[in-house]
Design a binder for these strands. Structure first.
Length: 350
DNA sequence: TTGTGTTTTATTGCCTCC
DNA sequence: GGAGGCAATAAAACACAA
């Protein structure tokens, strides 16, 4: 381990040896340990002396010895018990005591020494009052605690750094909590949105089926004027009256769907013998609505198809993509498709 | 006892303010 | 240009498990 004083360039050491009495002449033997203080005694042009400040500070405080490194710390206990440290004395005193002491003090390993619990408590109290350190306060604290003013300054600096990082941790935690709650809220809204979207799609599918069904019913009644089927409400009315979900939906066989694929319904189908479907479902669409007898759909497609009664998603445009500025704006159910192309909706592109 | 992680003390370089 | 603050970092001191 390097000796504290050995870090000082020789000329500086010599200068320090010349001026120690000036340092001792400071008020109460303590003129503070700031870097500016050094400039009073040391003719150095650099802002920071290459000599460790703790070594230099030692000259400004009435410590037993400026050369003791860690020994220069006066215990807080000593201060409280009014055991005043010995007044400053120069390196020459060591010379007088012989080379052994000289060597001992100059080659003393420089060790950090933690402040005592009392010292730290005292500093904490002071820090809580004011976390910035004015020069006068620094000197006073140094006196009270028997430390170098620079040590006080360093302690406050490190304490401010700790305080700041703790505050950052707190802020981070608060932000994280805030983020988590917002995310949970967002997820809930997303779920609600998905449910609503599914509901809209479901109703849309029912509407289209109903429209298809009614179209064929009208065709049948034209062919069969004796039909006594009462006139149907327009779908738009059903929509506005909220009755869509109550609309009777015909169940189509897969063959019918297949024929729809090709653009024609088989009016000879047994389900259409009188223009009205023989098996009408009331509300709700079950998975057997499109019960295929022989499916050419993949299993997944069948499941999706059967469960939702909806054409595959790529058939229906997304609601937000629908262009209502169509030629027939009165009919919001065509979703931007030309009316004559409705049949094409059923042209699954498998 | 030793290795390892954390805390504390201290240094260094840069920056801002006066 | 000096004083002092701050961030980054080094290194000693300390705590603790294996």
């Amino acid at each position: 381990m390097e000796c504290a004083m050995s870090r000082c360039p020789a000329p500086l050491i010599l200068e320090l040896f010349i001026y120690p009495q000036m340092a001792a002449a400071g008020e109460g033997g303590c003129v503070g340990g700031s870097r500016s203080d050094l400039s009073v005694f040391i003719t150095t042009k650099t802002k920071r002396s290459p000599c460790p400040p703790q070594t230099l500070d030692a000259f400004f405080v009435s410590a037993p010895s400026p050369f003791l490194g860690p020994r220069s710390m006066v215990s807080f206990q000593d201060v409280r018990e009014n055991r005043s440290p010995k007044s400053f004395y120069s390196p020459y005193d060591f010379r007088e005591n012989g080379d052994d002491e000289w060597d001992e003090y100059f080659h003393q390993p420089e060790k950090k020494r933690r402040l005592s619990v009392d010292q730290v408590q005292f500093l904490e109290k002071s820090f809580n009052l004011e976390n910035k350190l004015e020069p006068e306060r620094k000197v006073q604290l140094a006196k009270d605690l028997g430390l170098q003013p620079r040590q006080i300054a360093i302690w406050f600096q490190n304490r401010r750094a700790r305080c700041k990082s703790k505050q950052l941790e707190k802020d981070f935690d608060a932000l994280q909590d805030s983020y988590n709650s917002l995310k949970a809220e967002y997820d809930n809204l997303l779920n609600a949105k998905d449910k609503l979207k599914a509901e809209v799609n479901n109703l849309t599918g029912k509407l289209l089926l109903k429209e298809k069904y009614m179209g064929h019913a009208a065709e049948s009644s034209e062919l069969n004027p004796l039909s006594e089927e009462p006139p149907q409400k327009p779908i738009s009315d059903l929509v506005s009256e909220g009755e869509v979900s109550k609309v009777s939906i015909p169940a189509f066989t897969h063959e019918e769907i297949s024929s729809a694929k090709s653009g024609t319904f088989d009016s000879d189908s047994p389900h259409y013998n009188d223009g009205i479907h023989s098996s009408v479902l009331e509300t709700g669409v079950t998975s057997n609505v499109f019960e295929p007898e022989q499916s050419d759909l993949s299993q997944d497609e069948e499941e999706n198809f059967g469960n939702s009664l909806l054409p595959p998603p790529h058939i229906f445009p997304k609601l937000e993509d629908i262009d209502y500025s169509d030629d027939s704006p009165a009919n919001p159910c065509n979703f931007g498709f030309p009316v004559e192309d409705h049949a094409a909706l059923w042209c699954w592109s498998y």
